[in-house]
């Protein structure tokens, strides 16, 4: 099928402002958006820049805005999107070049919630045991691949660069609800700051955007409740 790709281009060495450029390409309906982007890069315009690594929805490097919704380019099929495809970098991030955005502020916020196991007891001789039921509590939030699709779809995140964003909150949830972890108070102290979890307006864009189908908004609400009940 004949497809029109309208891609937001920005070259920091030449352009003052990002602008759209259209490409007509031939694509199979079962091709992924990533294949369509590769077709443009390999056969039409080699200057097109985008991130991709594993190309199978695991590494989380090709999150972008496809027809107004944040998706992984490697998980969306051309046939499902349609003949006119608009591709932009994610909102709320600084554009470095074309579809490549500066993820550093995002990872800075991610690191602030201490995304690692905190346990002040001496390590046991074997593993730290956990029941299947306790593991189930935070199962959904272990699936995060840090692609940034949720934060980049979040209106408070667009308007307020200081907001910690849904991705960091999801990863805090993964440890706060882990029975082996003892760092909940530290993480909740971070999230309860003025630009923390209460800047969430329950828009649900993050839940729609997550390529791993994490119920992001639900996880955020669970953290708010824990803060309320633990007072």
């Amino acid at each position: 099928m004949q497809v029109t790709l309208k891609i937001l281009r920005f070259d920091p060495e030449k352009d003052k402002k990002a602008h759209f450029k259209s490409y007509e390409i031939e694509a199979d309906p079962l091709d992924r958006i990533l294949d369509a982007l590769n077709t443009v890069k390999w056969y039409k315009d080699g200057t097109l820049t985008f991130r991709r690594s594993c190309a199978h929805g695991v590494c989380g490097s090709d999150a972008m805005r496809i027809n107004g919704r944040n998706r992984l380019a490697c998980k969306e099929l051309v046939g499902d999107i349609g003949k006119k495809i608009t591709i932009e970098p994610m909102l709320g991030f600084r554009i470095l070049k074309d579809l490549v955005v500066d993820m550093e502020p995002f990872f800075e916020k991610y690191r602030s919630i201490k995304p690692y196991l905190i346990n002040y007891e001496d390590p046991p001789a074997t593993e730290r045991f956990q029941s299947a039921e306790d593991r189930e509590i935070f199962d959904e939030t272990t699936k995060c691949i840090l692609c940034g699709a949720c934060s980049g779809s979040c209106p408070p995140f667009w308007s307020n660069s200081e907001f910690i964003g849904p991705a960091a909150i999801v990863n805090a949830h993964r440890f706060i609800f882990d029975s082996r972890d003892q760092g909940s108070d530290e993480r909740i102290a971070v999230l309860s700051q003025s630009e923390g979890v209460f800047r969430c307006r329950t828009v649900y864009n993050c839940t729609d955007a997550c390529p791993r189908e994490i119920p992001v908004t639900k996880a955020i609400e669970q953290i708010k409740r824990v803060m309320l009940y633990n007072r």
């Binding site: 502020p105 690191r111 530290e186 102290a189 309860s192 700051q193 003025s194 803060m227």
Partner: peptide, 20 residues
């Protein structure tokens, strides 16, 4: 951003935002 300054020392919980 403020998030680089977040050290190991927990800050007091912001109760106003929670209650609002």
């Amino acid at each position: 951003s403020r998030w680089t300054r977040t050290g190991a020392r927990p800050r007091p919980t912001n109760a106003f935002e929670l209650y609002s």
